[in-house]
Design a protein around this nucleic acid. Structure first.
Lengths: 220, 220
DNA sequence: GTGTACGGAATTGTCGACATTATTGAGGAT
DNA sequence: ATCCTCAATAATGTCGACAATTCCGTACAC
């Protein structure tokens, strides 16, 4: 039994992993051929992606990959901070030994990745760390919202991992979050998470600024 | 030029205003006839509503109006509290005289509605009050999220406005929020908004409990 | 050289038809 | 009476075709 992914997941994956340029036009027939699906399925996928905000769908004018503006990128991270703060609080209140064990294990690997200078691997573990917290928070509504929040696209678009020294600081921030969770201290967990994502936000703003300067120095 | 609403808005309006029973099956052909649209358009609308969470779409099994479970209703209000808390903070930091004037005017009308015992009118003004704050916060990403959060459906499903004395307390809570906004105090605005929505959450839990007791006394 | 009108090509939107899949109901066995 | 089987019905999923609209390159006017 071949578990074939449907057109929606295929296309979503292609977009968030940057296989299309921002603002690139998405022609239904082309996509259908590329994914080996019918135009109907592609059409449904585009509607969903439009509702999700990854794609902009204009009547009689087709679909384009939605460009995330600088402002919107910042706003998305702000929303993420608010929601993940709440999730961290809940997680602290109800995390079990099992969840703490899983988190500790991820943190060990993160330390290894930082020492090895492997920022791609670190980034992946980072995502795992946050997802473990969502699991512990046991709050599907908030988790689904955060998960569909296009932060992945932002990281790709702005390359936020490239800031010098970011990984070390990020590691320390995660350690503080972990400590609060271990102590079952909801207030501390929320504020540690907010602090962490505040740093992420600053990094994003730095990346935006850098991008602008670079554009001025090397006009395309 | 007749600005005919499309199938999506028609159907959405019908669902949130309670014209379908929870869990009722939505047959494409029937809906298409009822809305005077083609099956294709209805199909697209259902996909969007599924993504939005108002409708559950199962493969080869059609669509049903999604029943909001008690647990999910609570979770939705929790998310709302987190996001509106953030929005209130931002609003306090950047609200102008014009915005404050509009809010003050709404509060006057709210007081009138409470004194007149008009809970429907109060509820409407309540929504206006919150929306004015979103406007002042100037944060489209968060506003759109909160707006698409099905709280309307919850209020309909649980009749939260019926709790005795709720209106008076709600009015006081709004006055505190207003005071914090007027003082441009972000911390106070966030905590006042959180306190207010905490009360709303308690009321919701009370309504859920009441519903269960009633169901036991009058088994259907 | 710049701007505009026009026509062909490309793309989207919608409909109907049909295959596939669930649901229902009748009939029969235990 | 209850459960199972199986055929009939109803609904969904997908495809192809065609109309409507937009896009793009060309020719023309100034």
């Amino acid at each position: 039994m071949r578990m074939r992914k449907d057109a929606y997941h295929h296309l979503r994956e292609a977009i968030v992993s940057g296989q299309f340029h921002p603002n690139e036009r998405l022609v239904e027939a082309t996509i259908a051929q590329r994914l080996g699906a019918g135009r109907t399925a592609v059409r449904a996928a585009l509607v969903r992606l439009d509702q999700e905000g990854l794609v902009k769908l204009e009547h009689n004018r087709g679909a384009r990959v939605r460009l995330i503006s600088d402002r919107e990128a910042v706003e998305i991270e702000e929303v993420r901070a608010a929601l993940e703060g709440m999730l961290a609080r809940r997680a602290a209140e109800r995390i079990k030994a099992e969840g703490l064990r899983a988190l500790r294990q991820v943190m060990v690997q993160m330390r290894e990745r930082v020492e090895a200078g492997d920022s791609a691997g670190y980034s992946e573990l980072n995502a795992t760390f946050h997802q473990l917290i969502w699991t512990a928070a046991d709050h599907p509504t908030a988790s689904n919202l955060v998960g569909s929040l296009k932060s992945q696209g932002i990281r790709f678009q702005y390359q936020t991992a490239l800031r010098p020294g970011r990984a070390q600081r990020s590691l320390r921030e995660h350690e503080e979050i972990f400590a609060a969770l271990k102590a079952h201290d909801g207030d501390a967990a929320e504020s540690a998470m907010r602090a962490h994502l505040g740093e992420v936000l600053d990094t994003l703003k730095w990346a935006i600024d850098t991008q602008h300067r670079t554009a001025r120095w090397l006009p395309g």
